[in-house]
Amino acid sequence: MNTQSNPGLTSAEIASLWSNYLSDSMAVQTISYTLSQVEDEDIRSVLQLALNLSQQHVQFIQNLFTNEQIAVPNGFSAKDVNLNAPRLYTDDFFLLYIQNLGKLGMTTYTMALSNAARSDIVQYFKQNLSTSADLLDQATQVKLTKGIFSRAPYIPKPEKVEYINDQHYLSGGWFSDKRPLNAIEITNLYYNIERNRVGTALIMGFSQVAQSPEVRKYMVRGRDVSEKHVNIFNKIMHNDHLSTPSVWDAQPTDSSESPFSDKLMMFHITTMNTAGIGQYGAAIGSSQRTDLN
């Protein structure tokens, strides 16, 4: 057992910090572009908070890796962003994007914290978890103030405790009656509709400005996959007469000049894919109706 007051970083800690560095160095460039375009001052304040947090994370990890004699990852820099590129997204999309970033940060830092042991790393991820919650709350409050916050569906309040007595509760096949969705399943569907709408809008913009034909093709395929998932989830919700996230102006502008390098856009989408797989896995684990699984 290592009893040193400052032991070396474990593989789990290095992996979390390495991934954190790459994601936040990308976020610094992405949010810097949004700040060069945003007009709404309330939304600007949320974006500025997100930028400050990402810059702090990048600096902390860079200093830590240097002190630990660990190679600093080749992340993203000002070379990967064109701050003078025309507007590609609306202010409302910037706000929804940052709100989604806050949700993603809370999930990521929770996992990183659960695998950390060294006191300074534990404190770092605890602080990041707290500030991600603050970022999410600030973005949510701005959406509420502007009347663009979409609430999950309301359901009747449970009046008594009930137990499942047979396997019919799991039914959801093509030839069997489907029971109504439960609250957990509604939550999973609603959140994944919203997440995929963010992804659809983001990747649509990327598909029209990417330089490489291969990257453009990849982005178009991603757009089609996200739209397919949204349509499937919407249909399931509508079959139970449940509301879905309200439609908002998520279409990118007609700009064809890219604000970002193809490298940054590909990393951004593959990172979202990774998060999406994790979120679908969590939904599978908590959904009991067979058709949803």
Rank of each mutant, 00 (worst) to 15 (best):
E68L: 00
I70A: 02
I70W: 01
A71I: 00
A71V: 00
V72E: 00
V72R: 00
N74G: 02
N74P: 00
N74M: 03
S77N: 02
A78Q: 05
V81L: 02
V81W: 01
N82R: 05
N84M: 05
P86N: 00
P86S: 02
P86E: 04
R87A: 13
T90P: 07
D91V: 02
D92T: 15
F94V: 12
Q99D: 14
Q99Y: 15
N100R: 15
G105T: 14
G105F: 06
T107F: 15
T108V: 11
T108Y: 10
Y109W: 11
M111T: 15
M111P: 09
M111A: 15
L113N: 07
S114P: 10
N115V: 05
N115S: 08
N115Q: 10
A116R: 04
R118W: 12
S119E: 15
S119R: 15
D120I: 03
I121E: 04
V122N: 04
V122G: 06
V122P: 06
V122D: 02
Q123H: 12
K126V: 07
N128R: 08
N128I: 03
L129W: 01
L129Y: 03
S132W: 00
A133F: 08
A133V: 08
D134N: 03
L136S: 04
L136H: 12
L136Q: 07
Q138P: 05
T140Q: 13
T140I: 10
Q141H: 09
Q141K: 12
V142Q: 06
V142S: 14
K143R: 15
K143S: 12
L144M: 13
T145H: 15
K146I: 14
I148F: 10
I148V: 15
I148D: 07
I148W: 08
S150W: 05
R151A: 14
R151Q: 13
R151I: 09
A152C: 06
Y154W: 05
I155S: 07
P156Y: 12
P158I: 07
V161D: 12
V161M: 13
Y163K: 09
Y163I: 05
I164K: 13
D166V: 13
D166Q: 11
D166K: 13
Q167K: 09
H168V: 14
L170Q: 08
S171F: 11
S171V: 01
G173Y: 05
S176G: 08
R179T: 09
P180A: 05
L181C: 06
L181Q: 03
L181H: 03
N182Q: 06
N182D: 13
A183H: 03
I186C: 06
T187D: 12
T187M: 09
N188G: 06
N188A: 02
L189A: 08
Y190S: 09
N192S: 05
E194K: 02
R195V: 07
R195W: 04
N196T: 01
N196I: 05
N196C: 06
R197H: 13
R197F: 11
G199H: 03
